[in-house]
């Protein structure tokens, strides 16, 4: 997907993508955020996720590592942090043509549900979304209350045995390292 380069607004390491989503919603930012996991191990070296926003509400999601967009890209991004996140601001007009890519769209509350694991933030995001957004995503967001699409992403995540083994493996080596550091 092509998005014009925006004005760098923030660049930092976050442990929980929820914080970024909450911050962007709070500031009603229009632009995009690039998430880069610090755990390249889990992303085959080069995975970056991009989420665009209009007035703080997520519109598109794309993942460079898997070249997938929309809800599947959220599943690609949903791995333990920390992430390096860069937020860029753009005028709404500059995002118009990118936002025509219907196959990359996600329902407004979905990133908060899936990346942030925060149903309350998802609810606030839906409240902030325009009526038009809610109407157009109604069909695939039976996830207004959780819902079928939402669960299929959790199930898709659970079907990815390789990714889960990588998460477990990483946790085990962290636990070993820290046992020494913490002098257990």
């Amino acid at each position: 997907m092509k998005v014009p380069r925006g004005r760098l607004d923030k660049s930092r390491v976050v442990t929980d993508p929820r914080d970024t989503l909450a911050d962007v919603l709070d500031r009603e930012l229009t632009g995009y955020a690039v998430f880069e996991s610090q755990e390249t191990l889990l992303l085959d070296g080069e995975g970056r996720g991009l989420i665009t926003f209009t007035d703080g509400v997520p519109v598109l999601v794309y993942h460079t590592g898997t070249d997938r967009g929309g809800p599947p890209a959220l599943a690609d991004l949903a791995i333990p942090g920390p992430y390096h996140v860069s937020i860029y601001a753009l005028d709404a007009a500059n995002l118009e043509s990118a936002h025509e890519a219907a196959d990359l769209r996600v329902p407004p509350g979905m990133p908060a549900e899936r990346l942030g694991g925060d149903p309350a933030l998802a609810d606030s995001t839906r409240r902030a979304a325009s009526d038009e957004r809610l109407r157009t995503t109604d069909s695939d967001e039976s996830s207004a209350e959780g819902g079928a699409t939402e669960q299929s992403a959790v199930e898709a995540f659970l079907d990815d045995a390789e990714k889960i083994e990588a998460i477990k493996q990483q946790a085990r080596s962290e636990a070993h390292e820290r046992a020494q550091q913490w002098e257990f």
């Binding site: 929980d16 929820r18 599943a75 949903a78 791995i79 333990p80 899936r114 990346l115 942030g116 694991g117 992403a153 959790v154 995540f157 659970l158 889960i164 998460i167 477990k168 946790a171 962290e174």
Partner: peptide
Amino acid sequence: IPAISDGLK
């Protein structure tokens, strides 16, 4: 997904 992956850890 976040809660399950953190639970795995």
